[in-house]
Computed example of a mutant assay.
Amino acid sequence: MPVHDVQATPVDPPLDCRACPRLVEFREGLQAEHPEWFNAPVPSFTSPNPRLLVIGLAPGMRGANATGRPFTGDYAGDLLYKTMLDFGFAEGAYKARPDDGLVLADALITNAVRCLPPQNKPTGPEIKTCRPYLLSTLAANPSVRAVLALGRIAHETFLTALELKRAQFPFSHNGRHELPGTDLVLFDSYHCSRYNTNTGRLTEDMFRDVFTSIRQHIP
């Protein structure tokens, strides 16, 4: 693990975080247009003592940015939570809203970038600025043993945060990487976005294959 001052960085940014000017400008425009939306850095969603950490890229506009809960309100959440329920990493019923009563079981969900970026594309500096929150989230949850990166950018961001060479751990769907110097195993999946599923890049069976691998690691 890289040296990181956990006490200096909370696990979630403040709701009025102004660290990334481009994201703040975009957020403030949406606050005026959709005042009923959450429109703020989205906090992580967790259970006590999680062993699985799921990392996405950033909130979706009509998903987490609107609802305030990761992967809630858009298609990516439909597939993610259905699969997590099937594999015992969530309990209750997912109804695409934060008050649906769904709870996680042995799991934690966060994003590499906590604010909505234009076109769902954060810049390198924005990813770097949010990295301390990812490290604090990991440090605050020493029970984590498996990490699921949803997409190449989440995969590379996590490796960079741990100061590991990305070339030694190439991204591949259903890839599995034991990370030296840690107790962690990194699993990879194509992102569960509507685009990936509509184009056939990711099928439900392919996504379930990843969770089957995770369950073999976390009984």
Rank of each mutant, 00 (worst) to 15 (best):
D5R: 13
C17S: 06
C17K: 04
A19N: 13
C20L: 07
F26S: 09
G29K: 05
A32L: 15
E33G: 13
E36P: 10
W37G: 03
W37R: 08
P41T: 04
S47P: 08
P48D: 15
N49G: 12
P50C: 02
R51E: 13
I55M: 00
I55V: 14
A58L: 03
P59W: 03
G60W: 00
G60P: 02
G63A: 05
A66C: 06
G73M: 00
Y75V: 09
Y75L: 10
Y75P: 04
D78H: 09
L79K: 14
L79D: 06
Y81R: 02
R97L: 04
D100M: 00
A105Y: 09
D106Y: 04
D106E: 08
L108E: 07
A112C: 05
C115Q: 08
C115D: 06
N120D: 10
N120K: 14
N120A: 14
P122G: 05
G124C: 09
G124E: 12
C130S: 10
L134S: 09
A146N: 12
A146V: 14
L148Q: 05
A149W: 00
A149Y: 01
L150E: 01
G151M: 02
E156Y: 05
E156W: 06
T157A: 09
T160C: 07
L162I: 11
E163V: 12
L164A: 07
L164G: 10
R166P: 09
F169H: 14
F169D: 01
H177M: 12
L186G: 01
S189M: 06
C192G: 15
S193Q: 06
N198L: 03
R201F: 02
L202C: 00
L202Q: 03
E204Y: 03
R208E: 11
R208V: 11
H217V: 07
H217W: 07
I218K: 07
